[in-house]
Nucleic acid binder design. Structure first.
Lengths: 85, 85, 85, 85
DNA sequence: GGCATGGGGCTTTAGC
DNA sequence: GCTAAAGCCCCATGCC
């Protein structure tokens, strides 16, 4: 009965509690979506696809094409500068 | 085979594309939730709360929930590992 | 008093404690090395190198060359099958 | 200066190579420690201990150490966020 | 505006 | 081989 934060005469505590609970609810939703994503990868795997490769493609599609090319360019530059095939 | 755009006789490409698009849709949903969370923090900030402190509290509440379960587990573990079945 | 594990007449608890402490010591050493690695990346960055690219090269060097090529091949296959440039 | 594959006038390549080799050396050391840890678990197993339980205990001890610090932090955080400076 | 810190997501590895 | 957990990487935020 002495819990700070849920007495009607502690408006600040109440408000804070409401914010926290809304955030925690969204965290749950976010986790549910993460689980859905995992489930889809499981399906794809069950259909014979290479999950790692799909993840890589999804990642590539989400990135700026120029940025990807520039990154690959510098990797090649470094590789040649150290005599790597 | 450069079936650009995916022909109906490229069943594999079609299936793969479906998987990828479902994943990307979920990524969008996940991002929308992340934005909602940020929005709530913005509200809280506007109401005079310390966003960093709230984040810390939310984090600790999440960890504490796990800690309770783990504590119960360790009691049994200690007992069994020292032969106190 | 249930101070299990540090009485001289509890040989099992003592032995267990020794194992745990040896492990924890190694965990500390491992962390020190991880910190050293981060420090080197910091040096490289200070010398004008692209840290992300170096990490990628280190990763490539640690992997089997054939495996890398095979992975890249399947990614290209998937990309073409969905009409991705 | 005698390294095959890069000339002494390729100072950048040399420097990069040095960074990479230092990192790879640390990776090896880190792996050696990981092997040591596995070895200790093997010893413990040979002495009749439950490896999984020990790992769990080590993990919890690590987390508990953090939890103590975080607990002290949260007390202040709660106080300040509800205006109990 | 760069830097350091922390949180979230991804990858990889260990165990079943 | 699959699932769970640990380490790593990246990004977003706060600080200097």
């Amino acid at each position: 009965m002495n819990d700070i934060g849920h007495n009607s005469d502690n408006a600040t505590g109440n408000e804070l509690k409401q914010f926290i609970e809304r955030i925690e609810r969204l965290h749950e939703e976010r986790k549910a979506i993460a689980d859905d994503i995992k489930e889809i990868y499981g399906e794809a795997k069950g259909r014979g696809f290479d999950v790692k490769a799909i993840k890589h493609i999804v990642s590539l599609r989400s990135k700026d094409a120029n940025a990807v090319q520039e990154f690959e360019a510098i990797v090649e530059l470094y590789k040649s500068s150290i005599g790597m095939a």
